[in-house]
Write a protein that binds this DNA or RNA. Sequence first.
RNA 1: GGGCGAUUGGCUCAGUCGGUUAGAGCGCGCGGUUCACAUCCGCGAGGUCACUGGUUCGAAUCCAGUAUCGCCCACCA
Length: 930
Amino acid sequence: MTDEANATGRGVRSSLPKTYVPADVEGAVYERWLAADVFGPDARGATADVDAPPFVIVMPPPNVTGALHLGHALTLDVEDVMVRHARMQGRPTLWLPGLDHASIAAQFVLDRILAAEGESRASLGRERYLERMWRFVDTTRDTILHQSRRFGASADWSRTRFTMDEVSARAVRTAFTRLYRDGLAYRAEALVNWCPGCRTSVSDLETVATPEVGTLWTIRYHLLDDAGRPDPEQWIAVATTRPETILGDVAVAVHPDDPRYQALVGRSVRIPFVDRPVPIIADPIVERGFGTGAVKITPAHDSDDHATGRRHGLPAITIMDDDARLNVAAGPYAGLDRYVARKQVLADLQALGDLQAATPHDMLIGRCQRSNDVVEPRLKTQWFIRTKPLAERALEATRSGQTRILPERFEKVWEHWLTEIRDWNLSRQLWWGHRIPAWYCPDGHVTVTDLVEGPDACTTCGRPSSELDQDGDIFDTWFSSGLWPFSTLGWPDDTADLRRFYPGTVMETGYDIIFFWVARMMMLGIHFLGEPPFRTVYLHGMVKDPTGAKMSKTKGNVVDPLEAIDQIGADALRFALINGTSPGNDQKFSREKLDSARNFANKLWNAARFVLGARPDMIAPDAARHVPQLTDLGPAERWLRSRIGATVAAVDLAMADHNIGEASRLLYDATWNELCDWGIEFAKVRLADETLPAEVRTATWWTLIEALDQLLRLLHPFLPFLTEAIWAAMPRGALDPELLIVARWPDATTAAALRDEPTETAVDALRTLITEVRNARSTARIPPSEWRAAAIHVPAPLAATFEELRPAIERMTRLRPIVRHDTRAELLAVAQPDALAVIVGDIEAFVAPGVLLTAADASGGAGRPQTVQADQVRLEHELAEAEGHLAAARDRLANETFLTRAPSAVVAGARTREAELTDQVARLRERLAG
RNA sequence: GGGCGAUUGGCUCAGUCGGUUAGAGCGCGCGGUUCACAUCCGCGAGGUCACUGGUUCGAAUCCAGUAUCGCCCACCA
């Protein structure tokens, strides 16, 4: 075949390579897509209807920190399926790819690399550190983008964005400035989660509550007498898990109604080592039953205590520095690490005789999600976002249905989190990220501006910019991520893209970042643009290892998606990740799934190879697509068309439901169990039958082509490379594009017209007959290759179909001749007593006797006189089954209330069934008796 | 402490609006050199749908409770 023929889009390549080698195909196919320019909403090669509503998918930009893992693969696959589906429906699609600078994660990774090189943040300094970071992300960025293409992602690479690029930077400055102007961003001293390892504050979401067994120590604080001296004989005992923080204690709290302590309220105790007198206060927050019922109050290092301290107007004494070492306020313990200090304090208390008890205690310790360090609550002056008003509008959006969350159950956690939301700490004491655009003058005035060059002067006192200092902190990464759906479209400018593509259609991501990311996008999107950034939030589950454990490098149970692609191809990996999954549910990923997907890819390839290679001679190799006459189709062809129509409808339903796992399952089934097992097998007989008229044989082939064509379209989102490669060899219609990726999704109306239920019913009955004959032959141990004769009675309505399919039935049952009798009586008259009986509904067949076996023979023993017909066992089994069902059916019909209350259709169905079973049972009994 | 999810053959999972006989893949057993595919073909065995109770003519499905596992949220020191 010539290149010209291919270029017309109508050429038929004579055959596909015998074996499908993904590596040979995938790269080349991707190049063809790129060359044809089909990915973007207005791509040159795209065939979208410009007036159709655009399909915009919002994806989480992966972190620039390293290679992609299986979770990324799943994300890209799910999104690619959705985008390809929409593209084939003729909608302009926007899938905007990008990367996230991931400030804390990236610094964590780079710090490790630097440590290996004998360098550190401190040794490089801010400027050189950032230069180094840019070099690092330049390489990882290329890796990630390259990998995304290997997954087959059909994103619009021309629009690739980075959360640290200038457009993003401007969006960040603008967003923050407006929030500040709107009174939603504020700077305040507050207790924040401090990670001493990362040397930055982190948000509540970034701290992980870790169960640990700690110790609950009981410590005596001596009461002060009127002269202010500690009384060695009188004390109040407090319980604490953090004895080192006593150095920052400012009070002891008891419950106001606690009779043990009521007399002590208002008196003072002495804090040891720092020799500080503090009051005993009453506060209902104290749990009387816990510990001693008396709590030490350390406002600077505990969030409960902070709140208590504020209620009582107590000072907050910070005793730790950024490295979590005790500071000068800790008196004799200054300079000690927090845990060293703890030991020392305990030893000193012991020496004083004031350590009363130590008991093991189950507790939750907050650890840094990134570094696993124990997070320290500390007082810091930082920037916060007032989230309540933003959260309310996000809740309105989901409650009103303006934005829908799928699966719906996630709406509950969404509700809860947004209802209980606390202010968002935006400041990070890191270097890699967007610098907070706030400047401070020596008088403490704050100037916030979105000007890239900073403010001219202090907006309060007019001091020139030279006297202003910019905040040294950067923003939480998720702040820029939260702007993603619109910052990528040119916001804050009112761009054409923004007007056309905001809000997005579907936001797709894993449920693990619903709060980190989805909630933030919702809050910020609604605030800045007045409407939510997407209509649907689709959350997929997590990919776990075969035992259900989380995949992690340290556990060594990760599957490298690129390795899997090298071994079995991207299509198989994609199918393995999607087939058999449902939205929001985790999946256990295993080698077996990959194998199964690979087998399916192989099956499709070979089916296509057969179909294309089975072209009858009278059809020219480069023949244009031809629609056969309905009258030239046989029952098998009509059956196959009808099943394809049913598949289109079922897949459409699943896709509309966002249930792509179900869609893939339906397609697996249709391809393997319908097209391959029956469609092709039936067709083989007609195609090979030279006695048939040419138009009948060609009609069969064109029917296979039609079925394959429809399945290729439906399968393309799932197996893009493989289907595209097959498509290239298919005879295409005049209107079909050269590339499947921009071909049209099967039309529902056309598909509905393919349905032919009477044919399906008739052919299904004959398919069951074939299966049952095979079963009978198998149990009777008739060699599969051996031809046998048979006699059959087929009820009149089925007779014509039977005759039309006779050659196929003969071949598939390996029975010939099959003598058909018009009445059952005729059949029984000729039936040999030892023939195998096959009773399928109204059809009854007798197959020439098989080998008669004893039980001993069946288990491999020597040949013996044959007394037991193995076939009898099968019939008895069938009889028992039928009798069971019959009994159930009769019970139901004997039930008066069933007859009166159940819908008449159900009752009628039960009656029919009962009649059928009665008949079936009678004939089975008759046969067994005979 | 609160919430969510899961529990269906040996394993991994489907199962729509409650409806007759609960499906698939893998694995298992038997058979197979059928000219697309052994990454295959044919046949088969294997399930009291976690448990208890309820609603209903009818429950894997709806309700209540229990158990086990997993996850999320949470300020008892």
